[in-house]
């Protein structure tokens, strides 16, 4: 017999009528949050608002006199260009491939960290090392490793592949870099999920005769679902904004140009603040849509996840 878990067992706090004490605690909570919220508004809301404002104008730094309000023209120019859709597709390829691999590897690493009996500290620390390295440094390290002249990968694999001159192999390296760099982050979030699974429950299911696979799919994963979704959400949002690895490794050549590279080219290289801001705002919209899908579509409950920790 397999054990099924009622949703309540996942530890959702039952809602109670609010007492006076709860209310004052709530108020205190808000007051404690207020400084942080103010700072957040200053450092995020203002730049976002300014970017939106810029995106509605024709504004090229080189031609300051031609500045004019053009409404949604910039957005039409971006969305009407096949380059935007091409780069959106590229970004999605990188995002989906890297997040799936990260999830699987991250799960395995989280399990190792969770179950490490001795040397728990060193094990956890060593798994986290790649996450502590600056992305640009990581990207360069991987680029040099795969370089046919200076790298060791071709020697190791016995190939003579020039990795960054073809599309598929350039994607492989970029995705591998992303995976290596951010799997630890995924593992860390999933480790938090593992702690949600009560040991008794796993033991009980074992007594009931559940095999390893059944324990994993019927007990552990359902209980971890909130953590998994949050991990996926964070990683997806990060991956959609990928810039460093692509910039360092291919500069967007061989069809690997991501949305952020497009924004960089328009904003920083071409100094077209209007058009570039429109690209940035649209990237922000893509991120919002993804977050919305996760929260509404898959029911990733952030508040619940946070409460559980």
């Amino acid at each position: 017999m397999t054990t099924t878990i009622p949703p309540q067992a996942a530890g959702q706090a039952p809602t109670r009528p609010r007492s006076g004490r709860a209310q004052s605690e709530r108020k205190l909570g808000w007051m404690l949050c207020a400084p942080a919220v103010t700072v957040m508004l200053l450092v995020t809301a203002y730049p976002i608002g300014y970017a939106v404002w810029l995106s509605l104008q024709r504004y090229d730094l080189r031609f300051p006199d031609d500045r004019a309000f053009v409404g949604l023209d910039n957005y039409a120019a971006v969305v009407g260009n096949r380059l935007w859709w091409q780069d959106l597709t590229n970004t999605m390829i990188i995002t989906v491939a890297s997040v799936i691999v990260e999830l699987i590897l991250g799960f395995a690493l989280a399990f190792v960290m969770h179950r490490a009996i001795f040397g728990r500290g060193p094990v956890r620390a060593s798994i986290l090392v790649p996450y502590g390295i600056i992305t640009v440094v990581t990207a360069f390290a991987w680029r040099f490793a795969f370089d046919p002249t200076t790298g060791f990968i071709n020697g190791l694999l016995g190939t003579e592949q020039s990795w960054f001159t073809e599309s598929w192999s350039a994607y492989v390296v970029i995705i591998a870099t992303e995976v290596w760099k951010t799997t630890p982050f995924m593992a860390l979030l999933l480790l938090a999920g593992f702690t949600l699974v009560p040991d008794d429950l796993v033991k009980a299911s074992r007594v009931d005769g559940a095999g390893t696979w059944q324990r994993l799919t019927k007990v552990i994963i359902p209980l971890m679902k909130p953590a998994i979704l949050v991990a996926l959400l964070f990683r997806t949002l990060d991956a959609v904004r990928i810039f460093d690895s692509v910039f360092v490794q291919t500069r967007g050549a061989q069809g690997t140009e991501s949305l952020s590279i497009l924004g960089y080219n328009t904003l920083i290289t071409r100094l077209n603040l209007g058009l570039g801001s429109a690209v940035s705002v649209l990237v922000f919209v893509v991120v919002l849509i993804i977050a919305f899908l996760f929260v509404k579509g898959f029911g990733a409950n952030l508040a619940q996840q946070r409460g559980e920790r």
Partner: peptide
């Protein structure tokens, strides 16, 4: 050169010296 598509001045120099 097989790496033509990623070749810059300095990569060219290195290959040349090889």
């Amino acid at each position: 050169d097989p790496t033509l598509a990623t070749s810059r001045e300095d990569q060219g120099r290195l290959s040349w010296e090889s």
